[in-house]
């Protein structure tokens, strides 16, 4: 897997909640049998007009977000289908980091990301990180005010810093195991295969139990 440690780049804003993986990469592009060629179709239906030209109203088509590598969206990003093609499309477009807020509404907590999308992203070295709702709101406001605003993301320190004359930093939570795997770009399958003995002895016992 691709490793992730520090990243600095331009921030792009996508002011939408519940962005589903059907929007990220529509079905007609899931017919490919390779892992490449998805970036040009990221957000296809929002991004292009009927005539194939870029839709000027779509956020990511704005000049100010050209070359962005950090995407900031609203809650429940990546919901819906399990298609890992969504992660490949985001990465191949050029994003290294996606940020979304954890939103509290009474007894309901709406996480920044849907589960399967988050798993898929972390298996591909795409850093998906959650900030608090007010923090994401602050990023939205700062990026709207300061064109070309960049951020520095440090996984080791679990910190996002807006590179303003007076820097603003936010701390994010990250599971220690996932962090370790990301920083070292470890191969998940390789790690599991190191436990071959445990798997084999489990199988012998488990198979016997299931004999009916």
């Amino acid at each position: 897997m691709k490793s992730f440690n520090n990243h600095q780049g331009l921030i792009a804003l996508l002011d939408r909640a519940n962005v589903d993986t059907d929007q990220i990469i529509p079905k007609q592009f899931l017919k490919k049998i390779t892992r490449t060629g998805f970036g040009e179709h990221l957000f296809q239906d929002w991004r292009y007009l009927e005539n194939g030209k870029p839709n000027p109203d779509f956020e990511l088509n704005q000049d100010r977000f050209k070359g962005a590598t950090i995407l900031v969206a609203r809650n429940n990003f990546g919901c819906g289908s399990s298609r890992e093609h969504a992660v490949w499309a985001i990465e191949q477009y050029g994003f290294h980091v996606v940020i979304a807020p954890n939103v509290e509404r009474g007894e309901n907590v709406i996480p920044g990301f849907a589960d399967i999308f988050r798993n898929n992203s972390l298996k591909n070295g795409l850093l998906t990180l959650e900030l608090q709702e007010a923090e994401v709101e602050e990023i939205f406001q700062m990026v709207s005010r300061f064109k070309g605003l960049q951020a520095k993301v440090e996984l080791e320190h679990q910190r996002v810093t807006l590179l303003l004359p007076e820097e603003i930093s936010f701390h994010f939570e990250m599971d220690a195991a996932i962090k370790h795997r990301l920083i070292h770009g470890l191969d998940d399958i390789g790690i599991t295969l190191q436990h071959e003995k445990a798997i084999s002895s489990f199988e012998a016992k488990h198979d016997a139990q299931l004999k009916y």
């Binding site: 399990s82 992660v87 399967i116 599991t192 798997i199 199988e203």
Partner: peptide, 29 residues
């Protein structure tokens, strides 16, 4: 993602991405 369907039988069933498909093929875990 609709693997959750099989939970109707009291099976723990969940959807995974392609990297995890490869993981299960290779390790059954």
């Amino acid at each position: 993602s609709h693997t959750s369907t099989h939970g109707a039988f009291g099976a723990l069933a969940f959807g995974i991405g392609t990297s995890e498909v490869e993981h299960v093929l290779a390790t059954q875990c």
